[in-house]
C-alpha cells in the first residue's frame, strides 16, 4: 500500500496546487466588459446542446498584423524591449534568414476595448469595408473591438501605463515577420501569432442562463441580413482578469449598446 501512496499523494498534490493557483489568481481580479463580438460561444461537442454542452467562449481580437498597422503599436523600440534583435537592416542580404530564424516571444499584450485604436477600423466599417479579424472565418458577427495597443515583458508596467483605459492585459506570442514586397521592398515587423488563452470556460450556472436566453443556439438570420451586414452582439460578458493574467467568466447578461 505504501507504494500506492507515493503516486496518489503526488497526484493529489498536483490537483490541490491547480485549485490553489486558480483561487489565488482570482483573489485580486479586475473586471472588463466585453461582448459576443469579442467572445463568441464555442460549443465543443457539436451534437450536445443546451445546459449539458461543453461551452466555452473564444477570444476574437483584431491582430493588426499588416506591416503598417503593426508598426503603430509594435514599434522597433517595443520589439527591442521585449527581446527581439533588430540589428540586421531589412535590406541586408541575410535579413530574411536572420528574422525568420528568430524565436517567437511570449509577452504581455494590452488589448484596448472599443478605444481610440478601434476608431479607424470603425470608420472603415462605416464605409462598407471590414477590418480583418483573426481567430475564425466569417461568423456573421460584427468585428471585434478588442485591439492590441501595447506589449511588454512586465504585466504591471502595462497595467500602470493603461490604468485609465479599458484594457485587457493577457499573454500572447509575438513573432518576427519578413517580407520582400515587389514594389515596397523588404520589410520587417512583429506580429501576434497566438493569444495565450484562446478560450474561456463558461461555468455551469452561467451556461444555464445562456441556454435559457437562447444564446447557445445559432443567432437567427433576419431577412435584412446579408453577409455584408454583420449582426450585433446579443450578450455582454463580465470578464475577470486575475493576478496571473488568467481570465474567467464572471457573468453573462443581455447586451447593452454603448455607441
Amino acid at each position: 500500500m505504501s507504494q500506492l501512496i507515493v503516486a496518489a499523494l503526488t497526484f493529489l498534490l498536483a490537483v490541490v496546487s491547480l485549485l490553489g493557483t486558480a483561487a489565488w489568481n482570482r483573489t485580486d481580479g479586475r473586471t472588463l466588459i466585453l461582448t459576443e463580438r469579442e467572445l463568441p460561444v464555442v460549443v465543443t461537442r457539436g451534437n450536445v446542446r443546451g445546459a449539458d454542452a461543453a461551452v466555452s467562449l473564444r477570444f476574437r481580437v483584431q491582430f493588426r498584423s499588416a506591416p503598417d498597422e503593426s508598426r503603430m503599436w509594435l514599434s522597433d523600440a517595443t520589439l527591442r524591449q521585449i527581446g527581439f534583435a533588430l540589428g540586421v537592416p531589412a535590406g541586408a542580404p541575410d535579413a530574411a534568414q536572420f528574422y525568420l530564424r528568430s524565436l517567437p516571444r511570449q509577452v504581455w499584450v494590452a488589448f484596448e476595448m472599443d478605444g481610440d485604436a478601434f476608431a479607424p477600423m470603425a470608420r472603415q466599417l462605416a464605409l462598407g469595408g471590414m477590418p480583418a479579424t483573426r481567430g475564425g472565418g466569417w461568423d456573421g458577427l460584427e468585428p471585434s473591438r478588442l485591439v492590441p495597443v501595447d506589449a511588454s515583458l512586465s504585466r504591471d508596467h502595462l497595467q500602470a501605463r493603461w490604468r485609465e483605459r479599458p484594457v485587457l492585459v493577457i499573454p500572447a506570442v509575438i513573432a518576427m515577420r519578413y517580407e520582400q514586397h515587389p514594389t515596397r521592398g523588404p520589410s520587417v515587423w512583429g506580429q501576434i501569432t497566438t493569444v495565450g488563452q484562446s478560450t474561456v470556460q463558461v461555468p455551469q450556472r452561467i451556461r444555464q442562463t445562456m441556454d435559457r436566453a437562447g444564446w447557445l443556439a445559432e443567432a437567427p438570420v433576419t431577412s435584412q441580413q446579408t453577409p455584408a451586414a454583420p449582426r450585433p452582439p446579443r450578450y455582454d460578458v463580465v470578464l475577470g482578469v486575475g493576478r496571473l493574467g488568467a481570465v474567467w467568466v464572471d457573468d453573462v447578461r443581455p447586451h447593452q449598446p454603448t455607441r
Binding site: Q3, F11, L18, L19, A22, Q197, A246
Partner: peptide, 23 residues
C-alpha cells in the same frame, strides 16, 4: 482541470503526470 479552471497551459503541468508515471 487546468482547462476547466482557465489556467494557462504551462510545461509545469507536465511534471505531475511524469512523477506519477515514474512512481
Amino acid at each position: 482541470i487546468a482547462r476547466l479552471l482557465d489556467l494557462p497551459l504551462s510545461p509545469l503541468l507536465l511534471w505531475p503526470p511524469v512523477c506519477v508515471g515514474i512512481a
